[in-house]
């Protein structure tokens, strides 16, 4: 892939403004990628993502798997010699991808994120069973997923980790307030939660 050095750094500026991080502070030492628990399954390592931002490679970045795979654990930031919070940049990239309608090469994680947020919006809290069932139905690998669940699910009931009362969702008292938060965020982001 050929890349060009752009005259205007609009992507860089936008990401810096939204993440509060100075991309130019990066030493390119790649310690973030070395510490990242997911860099081995990412299509671009975190340090490469910073370089791509400098190059303005927006399409590749916003459709990448890497930005969806970041779990926001913060190891990158905790270890960074420049004190740079890489996960904040990942967060901004993920939000931009959603706002601008990019289809990620990684499809499962965005689907699960949407289901997760839907649960929180509807019940005021996350409900594990609903999340699991809805996620399994949406990912298109039901047989495999159910098979994977068999050795895990029943023992959780037997050992008392889950009770039958956990099967159906419970709404929290302040559910309306949570729904309001979602409404406000959607307004702020122009309809994208």
């Amino acid at each position: 892939m050929k890349v060009w050095l752009e005259e205007k750094h609009s992507l860089l500026e936008e990401i810096e403004a939204r993440s509060g991080q100075k991309v130019q502070e990066c030493y390119q030492c790649s310690k973030c990628s070395g510490g990242c628990p997911f860099s081995r399954v990412m299509d671009y390592a975190p340090n490469s993502i910073l370089e791509m931002i400098v190059y303005g490679m927006k399409d590749q970045l916003l459709s990448s798997k890497a930005i969806q795979m970041c779990i926001q654990c913060g190891i990158c930031g905790a270890q960074c010699p420049a004190g740079f919070e890489m996960y904040e940049v990942m967060n901004v990239l993920r939000a931009m991808a959603k706002e601008e309608g990019y289809i990620s090469h990684e499809t499962k994680i965005p689907k699960m994120n949407n289901i997760f947020l839907g649960e929180v919006k509807n019940n005021g809290r996350m409900h594990e069973v609903n999340l699991m069932v809805k996620n399994m139905l949406s990912q298109g690998e039901l047989v495999r997923d159910v098979a994977a669940l068999i050795p895990i699910g029943p023992p959780m009931f037997l050992k008392g980790i889950m009770g039958f009362g956990d099967v159906l969702p419970h709404k929290i008292k302040g559910q309306a307030a949570v729904a309001k938060i979602f409404e406000n965020v959607e307004k702020m982001q122009g309809g994208h939660a």
């Binding site: 030492c29 790649s30 310690k31 973030c32 070395g34 510490g35 860099s39 390592a45």
Partner: peptide, 19 residues
């Protein structure tokens, strides 16, 4: 830059990204 050095039995595991 090395990210982690983990003790593993009698050995050490050094983890980094080859950039």
């Amino acid at each position: 830059r090395v990210a982690k050095v983990i003790e593993s039995g009698s050995k050490l595991i050094v983890r980094a990204e080859d950039s």
